[in-house]
Structure formats: structure tokens, C-alpha cells
């Protein structure tokens, strides 16, 4: 799934030309007290229509991108980097299908701007397995038949890994409460609870 080329050119933008036009002026400028004067009043150089350069670290690898500032982590992953495991269910924080780990914490990639995720470690469903060996939570979902259509499953699994590590998989009720942010339209819930119970001891053992 390495697609360096698509990451820089899929927008139809020539990066070199953009860099020249922008004359090195970053559109996404850091604001410091010292630089606040010019930075505070967006100038013509900071045209919001122009894409910005950024680096995302996904599953241990740095990926350079040139994106519209509006791009979410979810869209960057799916549309630009080829990581289509994370799903777009609602795009509004209501379903959990887009759950990824950022610095080990489960978050919703549909409500996280790619620009905000710079400098942080993003882990997607594609980053859980150890080579050909499935992550214990992935294996448990298969063993327990914890899905039907599978659309919610990547989000469920990533969320479940974090749920266990947070210490919130101590009982069925505990699991249901702390997994409530992942909706399953097929209602595979009993099997999802069973899968999390199966995987939890192995994950906690390390």
C-alpha cells in the first residue's frame, strides 16, 4: 500500500509549482507572540484556497502530503494515502466507523483535521497486525463471528483495543458502555462483546 506518487499528485496540483508560487510562505503558519502581528491578519499570501504541505505519521511511516486545509485525517487516509480500512459512516462523530488511534488514544478521524494530527502517531486498522499475524483483537472478531457486513468492524476493532488498554473491559456492562461510540447497523453487539472478552487477557498480558 505504498503510494508515494498519489500522495503528492492526486489533487492535480504540481507541488513544485505551488511551492514556487507561494514563495515559501506557509499557509498554515505557526502563531507565536512575536509573529502574531502579520500572522494575525491573514494576508493575500495566505490564500485559504491553496493547499498546504504537511507530514502525517501513519502506522510508523512518515507520509508527505499536499492538502486542502479542510481535509480530515479520515479523508487523508482514505483518499490520499490508500488506507481504506477506516470507514466513513456518518462523517459527523456519530458512528465510530472512522476510529483511529492518535498517540495511542482512540479518536474520531472524521472530526480531526489532518493539520492538527501533524507530529502525532496515527495508528489505523492496517497498523494493528504483526506482519501476517493478526492482532489478538482481529483474531477474536473472526473467532467470535463479531460482524455481518463488516462496515463498522475496523472502527470496532481499533476502538476495542483502546477500550481494553484503558481498563474498561472488566464486565459485559463495562464493555457495552465504553464501546457505545461504535454503532453496528447489523447489531452484532453480543458477538462483539464476546470478542473483546476473548482478546482482553492476551492484550493486557502484553
Amino acid at each position: 500500500m505504498s503510494d508515494k506518487s498519489s500522495s503528492s499528485n492526486a489533487s492535480g496540483f504540481n507541488r513544485r509549482a505551488f511551492m514556487a508560487a507561494a514563495a515559501g510562505t506557509a499557509v498554515a503558519a505557526p502563531l507565536t507572540a512575536r509573529a502574531a502581528g502579520p500572522a494575525a491578519t491573514p494576508s493575500a499570501a495566505q490564500d485559504p484556497q491553496l493547499p498546504v504541505d504537511l507530514t502525517l505519521r501513519v502506522n510508523g511511516q512518515n507520509r508527505q502530503l499536499n492538502l486542502d486545509a479542510r481535509t480530515t485525517v479520515l479523508d487523508a487516509l482514505r483518499e490520499r494515502l490508500g488506507f481504506t480500512g477506516s470507514k466513513k459512516g456518518c462523517d459527523h462523530g456519530q458512528c465510530g466507523a472512522c476510529t483511529v488511534l492518535i498517540d495511542g488514544r482512540r479518536v474520531l478521524s472524521c472530526l480531526t483535521l489532518a493539520l492538527v494530527a501533524q507530529g502525532h502517531e496515527i495508528t489505523t486498522i492496517e497498523g494493528l497486525a504483526d506482519g501476517d499475524k493478526l492482532h489478538p483483537m482481529q483474531q477474536a472478531f473472526i473467532d467470535q463471528d463479531a460482524f455481518q457486513c463488516g462496515y463498522c468492524t475496523p472502527g470496532q476493532i481499533v476502538s476495542a483495543v483502546a477500550c481494553v488498554k484503558e481498563g474498561h473491559a472488566n464486565s459485559d456492562d463495562d464493555i457495552r458502555e465504553y464501546m457505545s461510540g461504535n454503532i453496528c447497523r447489523c447489531a452484532a453487539y453480543p458477538n462483539i462483546v464476546a470478542a473483546i472478552k476473548q482478546a482482553a487477557p492476551e492484550i493486557l498480558k502484553g
Binding site: 503558519a29 505557526p30 507565536t32 479542510r70
Partner: peptide, 21 residues
């Protein structure tokens, strides 16, 4: 979503100046 300029505020006074603008 409307296009916007993105800036990150490294300290409170920079954030406040930008917001007051």
C-alpha cells in the same frame, strides 16, 4: 465546508490577538 486559513497558536497571547482580529 468553507475554505479557511489554518494557524496554530503556540501561546495564549498569539491566540488572543488572532481571535480579537
Amino acid at each position: 465546508m468553507q475554505p479557511f486559513v489554518f494557524q496554530s497558536a503556540n501561546d495564549p497571547s498569539a491566540a488572543m490577538q488572532a481571535l480579537a482580529a
